[in-house]
Design a protein around this nucleic acid. Structure first.
Lengths: 396, 396
DNA sequence: ACGACTTTTTCCACTCAGAGGACAAAGGGA
DNA sequence: TCCCTTTGTCCTCTGAGTGGAAAAAGTCGT
């Protein structure tokens, strides 16, 4: 089938497309309740959208007691591709135009193999999803990469953990390979957009989304829009000093948050604890698998292992201390914690909360929920789909 | 004379008023170059503005080689009142519609005397300015207070250093007393707006403005707009922990930045150093005046006093450390340092720069100027005038 | 001084988005 | 069945805004 080529012709049409994306099928009358346009104008714009094929009629709407009305919905054949490239794995998912995930694949991978190898893998994963009948093609794709991005051009800039990616024209290249429009952003920003669209951050205008994975980053949402900073590196909180004269960090400084707590740091600490015999539980796991990760620490903690719990609490304290500073500065309406270590769950959350509520002023923390993300690994890919759909559903 | 009652009737008129405010007198043709409206439409809107009296004709424009054209300017009788309430003093200024300061008074004062006493003083200062012939009345007033403000209502909320102000309807009350529209904001935000309008931050979209006075605060500008946070306490960085287990702070925690460096902390440290005989220079000043302030430390430092220099450097290091974290997080395009301690000058600035450039990542600091504010005490009052003019020069 | 060329302003006819009312179509409830 | 409500369609009217023509008022070269 031919892919979506049309774009909304004006701001009204863009608005309607977004309403249909976020609210699902709607009758013309229901749309009219939301957009403050006259019925005639609305009818004209809907008619034009129907002509483009972006939306289609979809049976009868639930009756509200008058003349029966027909539903309108986004074309059911539209497909977005969401790609979330992490440090050690990739997530690829297909969504429909309402951003519902129809299929999702996760595979291990190492970003350091460089963009060419990684995108080869991504394309084969996308092909697999296509082959399973979920899509006949893609109308747009959103890509998340674990480092700063010059957003307008879709190019990674000086990414510390991704040597070989600096300046690689991700947007350009993937747009060619996939044959559809592509937008690229930092993975943390996409997670924030995902939680905003379908997770805990719905209806919150200003919030922070802290992602603790291999590294640590923070998505910043201001007035419903992701804030990316002057050079695209906003939210890069992994290298904020958490411990004066603390551990050496790969960035050359000492005491960076990331050096003391992150997926990588946690794995290292756990391995060390196991080798030094501080924890039977961890030692057993190390012996069984050969290496430890955050997942093992989570499991050990769940089994009641004191060392594992201490590691988590200590990390939570450090993280909480940094977040407390950010809360004072930014005064968000919500803080979301997500990423690979979310499995550490409430032990981690409790430690973070304790620090923040103790250190920040009551006016900032008074009504401040600090919660775990509710989408887990799908936050990134949903955010990616959201990114490209925001782009496509905006006036040309 | 009757005061301004008219307001722009639509977004175009508002746009034109702001252009005239920021660019001074302009011919219709020059305005046309900036607004992307047809000549005819522009002529209509200008005509309507002339009818309201908000703008007036103002002689001939500089010739560009064709038919002579007449300048348009904002009504020369328009007057805004800018009020900057600090912890220990008040600044009151009158500006014209182009936000040029026509008269400026500074008086010592103690906010803790409460809103009624303070506003009595402010009103008498405003009356003095009026009496000196600078204004026949005020068309609007902007007020800055040293604490968080619920912005839409113009009411201080839970201000730590201003007991008795919590919930006081500043906007309402002053609007009554002055008989003109009033807007209220945090003093730090106003300083940021001042530097943005007439100071170092012109043409920068995203920047931070750190004000070090009796306390420490930070104005946050995102995309040219001040960001105030969910409860109006954004930028409250004085209580970020700068020293683990450091000095006790009035807020109940330990190690807050404000407890280690601020006008108040500096005065205390200097007094202690003088009393313990560490510094002849400071001891002499203490003996002469009876108490020390940041100004004395600045003077001692200028005279080469080692103790004073150490105090400044130490404070700069602490401040720089906190700012380094904020820079990593926010990735601003500029950092402005201002407030009462600006007199400490380049010693302070150098210490801050050292910390930030060392601790933050190159991508964030690569092209990041860290500079002193260039407006000094007028930044606040200009920002206040800007605040109310933005309000008045927006579509009703 | 005069003509050629520019710039600025004014006037006017024309387009087009959008509002809003009238009316038709198609239900529900007493 | 009758009446009321909701929804969809049609049509007219308004007002914002565009763009061209022409007039007004300069500059500059010869």
């Amino acid at each position: 089938m031919r892919r979506m080529t049309a774009r909304p012709g004006n701001a009204h049409q863009a608005r309607l497309l977004r309403l249909l994306r976020d609210g699902g099928p709607n009758s013309r009358a229901q749309l009219g309740d939301q957009v403050d346009l006259s019925r005639s104008k609305l009818a004209v714009e809907v008619e034009r959208l129907l002509e483009t094929g972006l939306v289609v009629a979809d049976g009868l709407a639930a009756s509200r007691g008058g003349r029966r009305s027909h539903n309108i919905r986004l074309a059911p054949a539209l497909r977005f591709l969401g790609v979330d490239i992490g440090a050690t794995s990739v997530d690829v998912a297909v969504t429909n135009a309402e951003l519902e995930v129809l299929g999702h694949i996760n595979q291990p991978m190492d970003v350091r193999e460089g963009p060419v190898a990684v995108f080869e893998q991504v394309l084969s994963m996308a092909a697999k999803l296509k082959a399973s009948g979920l899509a006949e093609g893609f109308d747009g794709a959103g890509i998340g990469v674990p480092g700063p991005v010059r957003f307008p051009e879709g190019v990674p800039v000086a990414p510390p953990i991704m040597p070989g990616w600096d300046g690689f024209p991700v947007r350009e290249a993937l747009s060619q390979d996939l044959g559809c429009p592509v937008m690229v952003d930092n993975d943390v920003n996409l997670m924030a957009m995902g939680e905003q669209h379908a997770g805990v951050a719905r209806s919150v205008g200003d919030f922070l989304c802290v992602k603790i994975g291999t590294g640590i980053g923070c998505g910043i949402v201001v007035g419903g829009e992701v804030y990316r900073g002057t050079t695209g590196s906003a939210g890069d909180i992994g290298h904020i000093q958490a411990v004066p004269d603390g551990r050496p960090c790969a960035c050359g400084n000492r005491g960076c948050l990331e050096a003391h707590f992150s997926g990588a740091a946690l794995a290292r600490d756990a391995t060390e604890a196991a080798q030094q015999g501080h924890s039977q539980e961890l030692a057993a796991r190390l012996a069984a698998v050969g290496s430890l990760s955050a997942v093992d620490v989570a499991a050990a903690a769940a089994a009641g292992d004191a060392t594992a719990l201490d590691l988590i609490r200590e990390g939570g304290n450090r993280t909480g201390q940094v977040i407390a500073g950010l809360v004072s500065f930014f005064n968000p309406g919500l803080v979301v914690i997500g990423g690979g270590v979310t499995g550490l769950g409430h032990t981690l959350l409790a430690a973070i909360r304790t620090q923040v509520y103790r250190q920040s002023l009551p006016l900032a923390t008074g009504n401040l929920p600090i919660v775990l993300g509710e989408l887990g690994p799908t936050a990134g890919v949903i955010g990616a789909a959201r990114l490209i759909s925001d782009h496509l559903f905006s006036p040309a």
